[in-house]
């Protein structure tokens, strides 16, 4: 029965969203459905937090490999949550100087702000920066002209890598204006706006058709994978 209710909600919501594009009176109903989605998205945060706690607590209790990392994750999670909720170190608002928790939780100088600025930001930026090292290593070991397609990719990569920096200007700046399209920075733009754009248009059209087909299957209850295993 529960599953049938979920399927009915999906059917009604999906059909309403489609109709709202064509029938003006149904637009306000579709807006309500969109608002339900936003409420559900907020609840998903709570579910996500519960899931995170469940997985890592289970790892710690069974002493799985790397359980120490799970402990660090949980400690960091609980500490951040507590600091945010309790507004530790938050300066009170000028309008309410006697109310210690009246300020913003991540206002400059608060403990939450400190965590964000000096822990979260550097850690996430470091993780992202590591890509440069792995890409360099991969470029040396894997980016090889093994066939025609790989060679074309290699030539395009060379043009873009050089054309997107000042090296392009230095290397091909001497080319006369009448042949300026041959300058690396212009070739890079041509690759970007002609070849990459054409390829991406094809991909976008393919994805759009796929999304339409999948959406129809979900609305009609043919695809029920979103309700979990067993369907």
């Amino acid at each position: 029965m529960n599953r049938q209710i979920a399927l009915l909600v999906t059917l009604v919501s999906g059909v309403l969203m489609v109709l709202s594009g064509f029938l003006i009176p149904t637009q306000s109903w579709a807006e309500d459905v969109a608002e339900w989605f936003n409420v559900l998205a907020s609840i998903a945060f709570v579910l996500g937090a519960a899931n995170l706690a469940k997985i890592h607590l289970s790892k710690i209790s069974s002493r799985d490999e790397g359980w120490g990392f799970s402990a660090v994750t949980l400690i960091a999670f609980v500490a951040t949550l507590a600091i945010g909720f309790l507004k530790i170190g938050v300066a009170p608002l000028e309008t309410a100087p006697l109310v210690s928790m009246s300020g913003e939780k991540d206002g400059e100088g608060s403990a939450f702000w400190w965590l964000y600025t000096f822990v979260m930001s550097p850690i996430t930026a470091t993780m992202f920066s590591l890509l440069a090292f792995y890409v360099a290593s991969a470029a040396f070991r894997a980016f090889r002209a093994k066939n025609v397609e790989a060679t074309l990719l290699l030539v395009a990569a060379f043009i873009v890598l050089l054309g997107r920096t000042f090296a392009g200007v230095v290397l091909t700046g001497w080319i006369p204006d009448s042949l300026s399209f041959l300058r690396l920075e212009n070739l890079s733009t041509i690759i970007f706006e002609v070849f990459a754009s054409a390829g991406n248009r094809a991909i976008i059209i393919g994805i759009a058709l796929g999304v339409a087909a999948t959406s129809l299957k979900i609305i009609l209850g043919i695809d029920r994978s979103y309700m979990g295993s067993g369907d």
Partner: peptide, 19 residues
């Protein structure tokens, strides 16, 4: 842009050596 330039030049160099 300068770190990007030298990073890109290194990548080009590594691809050339690799090939």
């Amino acid at each position: 842009m300068a770190p990007q330039l030298f990073g890109h030049l290194l990548m080009v160099g590594l691809i050339l050596v690799g090939n």
